[in-house]
Every structure is written in C-alpha cells, then in structure tokens.
Design a protein around this nucleic acid. Structure first.
Lengths: 253, 253
DNA sequence: CGCTACCTTGACGGATGTCAAGGTGGGTGG
DNA sequence: CCACCCACCTTGACATCCGTCAAGGTAGCG
C-alpha cells in the first residue's frame, strides 16, 4: 500500500493519538486499490466494507429493478464510505475520476478499533453526519421542486469542492448531468433545462461540460429554499484554510 | 425512572454482558419522560440527544421554512433515535400515542460507552442500519410514483408493526394520513386517493381510520417496485417469535 | 347527539417526465 | 495539429401525474 494514501487515512480518520500498533493492524487489513475513471471499485463480497477515498471522486449507486441507477451520494477525498455487503441491495461504487481507495472489512476494522474507542467514536460521528446528510437529501427529494434541488445541489457541491474565484465560487464537477439527475430524482432533460434557466438569469455561468461558476450565492440559497444564511462563502474559506472538511460516511452529495 | 422502561433499554440496547457499573451510570444520565399523544418530547437543548423509545410511537419531524412539516421517520418501541441539537435544523420528536422515553445526552452516553466498546458498536450498528433505511427512503422519494411510495410504506409498516391475521397482515397505524403524506412527500389527497385505489383492487381493506389489512403481499410488493421477494410474511413471523426487531436510530419508517 | 378533526372525492392546472431531433465538447487517431 | 466521432448535452412538443382548490362525508369523542 502506498505510504501517501495510508498517511492521508491516518491523518483524517485516526486521531493523532492512536497507538502505532492499531495503525499497523489497520494497514494490514486495508486493501489498497487504484481505479480508473468509469470503472467499478471492486469490494470483497464477504461482508460490509468501510472504504476510505484517498484521491479522486466516486458515486455510490443502487441498481434499480429496471436496470436504471440511482445515485445515493457523491464522494471526495477524505471521505469514509460505508458500503453494505452486496447481497440483493446491489449497492456499488464507481469512479468518476481516477481514484485511490483503501477498503477495510467493516467487522475487522471495528474489532481493531475497539482497542481504541476514540477511533470508534470518530467513525460513529461520521456516520451520524452521513445520516444527517441523508436526511437532508430525503427532505430535498420529498418536497422540493426541480430548481430547488439543482440549486441546493450546487450549493452543497460548493461547500465540498468549490474554490473561491473573485466574487464567485468555481466548481469543477466530476459527474455528468445524468449522474446529477440520478442523484436528485430528475431526468437529464430537466437538469439541463434548470441549468439553462439559471444561466439565463446570470446566477451561474458554465464553461465546457464540467466547470460551473456560482454568482450571487445569496440568491441561489433563496432559490434552494434555504433560510437566509449567506455564510457559504465564509464557511468555504474557513475550511480551506484549516484544511479540515467535515467528511462523511457515504451520504455526501 | 421506572424500572420497567430502563429494563427494556438494558435488554435491547445494552448487550447482556455489560457491567453493572456502566448500566448504573447510564441510568443516572438518562432522563425519563412520559408524553401524551400529540405532544412534543422535550429534549435538552445543550447537545445532541440519544432517545430510547420504551413505549408508544413517535414521529421525527423537520419544520420547513414555510411552517409545514416533513416527517423524517416514524418510531416504535425499542428504537434508539438520534436527535441533533435543535439549533436551526429544528428537528423535533412528537408523540403519536402516549409514550415513555429515556433521553440521554449523546456525548455523555458515548463517553460512558467507551468503557464498554460493545455498547459503542451496538450504537454504531444501529446508526448504520438507520443510514440504510434513510438511503432507502431517499430512493423511494426520488424515483417512485405515489402508488409505489404508498405500497412501499405499507410493507415497511408491516415489517415493523404488522401482526399476521389469517392470510393477511393487520396494521394499526398510529399516524394520520397527513403524517403519511408528510413522510412520503405527497399531499393528503394523493394519499387518500391511493388508499382508495388499493381498496378498490382488493389489495388492502380498511376499518375505521387506523386499521389497515394487507392482502396479496406479493402483488403489493410488485406495486412497490420490489424485486419479487415474497418473504415479508415469513420475516414477520420469525421476528415476532424471536422477539427481536432490527430497531433503528432515527430512520425507521 | 352533535361537534370537530380527519378523510374522501372531484375538477383543474402546472411542473416534470417522455419522446424526438439536433448541437457541442473533448478525446482519439491520423 | 487537425479532423473526426461519439458520448453528452440542449431544446422543443406533448402527455401525464400529482398538487391545488373546493365541497362534502364520516369517525370518534365528549
């Protein structure tokens, strides 16, 4: 396993105070993997997995009975993703860009972590965060219009991978319009129409297929159905400065 | 705190092998509460809470900006519910029937549980289960039609509180049509129309406002968009015999 | 027995899915 | 470096499902 990836894992998931022994044992059960864009991250089918994403971007998908796919979440470096054993649920993880991952069998991971309750608590805290994100997603899908979903999605992305750019925030979206639609419960056509509409109102601008610039964050937040907290920009700055992002287990957008 | 409620908590959440001391300390920080139907379960605002539902039924709701409410989950006895600190998220827990609950400050609970990693793992396991349920809910809300949502909801309820009744399953739903709609992202009218339609097709029958009987579970499962696993009945029998239900942290339907 | 909250039914309109027909970006190979 | 090609995106016309508004009906409780 490349030292660089595991070091990232150690920094982000294991607190600073973890014994070298625990770290050692975890590195022994972790399966490193390098995956090319559009390929599946191969996971052992012998139980639930905890996957650490060291580099790249992924989507977590469910295959529906009709062979279509629904995107549960997008993930970015530093995320810890819980993937249940692929029995019938048919959850799988696909690379949106070239990826480096470390996959741990969940049971072994947790057994080792029992020796170091702080690690267990870190995992629990991230899982609770994932649950909150998933709840938010459920609200979004249940109640919001297409435009609200799209703007909410863009703002969530801004929080996660946006970079300040003058008065705007610049996004380099690794996922296709289809992926966005599959994540928000919309068709690709509706996604496209909403992008066009936001572009016509100068709330966003786009360059090529993946670059999106968000202007007027406050107006976008209003469109997303938020309640006037125009601190997205501030949050991003704070986060990029400290180098800490909330991270998640499997419910990031 | 009534012995009966805490005993239930001990049986369901604490494994049999927990030290008397841990159990004792948990009972000291747990706030017992009896709540009447339609009232709010009052929680300390000083941090996240873990609420054990010993008796009754509850809904976990979010107040939307427009003062409407969205139901995140319904809960039943034995569930452990994670309720984040009510900052702006405005999540609250309402009793659908007379309830008995024990509320623990999450941080204190987890600190005590660190002495007994098996408890921490139980909580983590339940949280992961809640995450799975929430993911399922997200899929349901994102992709399914009104009829699929309703039938899926009824089958989920059958798994949780259904009792076998000849060839059917009988449900005594503690929540109103409005609550069901708020949970599935539908209006009360649409819920009502779908009930009527299912009734006309003899897939369900109703008595009064809260009794629902499900016939033809396999057909209902098809309507729900499931993939032909007609084992719902079997699962319920097995569960009611063993007295064990999966339980959840805050994402039950 | 009557009141009230809750449920049911109907008519209508609008947001979004579906179907269809181009247009465009970006990577590949010459 | 350019041209080509394919996947991806955009736009339009139309259909449909569900939300909205409105008007009763009914269960369950006092």
């Amino acid at each position: 396993m490349p030292k660089e990836s595991f070091d990232r894992f150690r920094r982000q998931i294991l607190a600073r105070c973890v014994s070298a022994q625990v770290s050692e044992r975890l590195s022994e059960i972790g399966q490193f993997q390098q995956t090319r864009r559009a390929e599946r991250i191969v996971l052992s089918a012998t139980g639930d997995q905890l996957v650490f994403l060291a580099e790249g971007a992924t989507k977590l998908i469910v295959r529906m009975p009709d062979a279509s796919e629904h995107v549960l979440a997008f993930h970015f470096p530093g995320d810890m993703i819980y993937v249940p054993q692929p029995e019938q649920g048919a959850i799988s993880m696909l690379a949106l860009a070239d990826c480096r991952t470390i996959a741990f069998p969940a049971n072994s991971f947790l057994e080792i972590a029992e020796a170091e309750p702080s690690v267990l608590r870190t995992i629990l805290a991230r899982t609770l965060l994932a649950l909150q994100r998933c709840r938010n997603k459920a609200i979004r899908l249940g109640r919001k219009s297409a435009q609200e979903r799209i703007t909410d999605f863009l703002l969530a992305m801004a929080d996660r991978i946006g970079v300040p750019d003058g008065n705007s925030i610049r996004l380099n979206l690794p996922m296709s319009r289809r992926d966005i639609g599959n994540s928000l419960g919309l068709t690709i056509e509706t996604v496209s129409r909403q992008f066009t509409e936001l572009r016509n109102e100068h709330l966003i601008s786009t360059a090529g297929r993946s670059i999106v610039r968000l202007h007027h964050l406050d107006e976008l937040a209003t469109r997303a159905g938020h309640v006037s907290r125009s601190n997205t920009q501030a949050k991003i700055c704070a986060e990029s400065k400290s180098g800490l992002r909330p991270g998640a287990i499997a419910a990031a957008d």
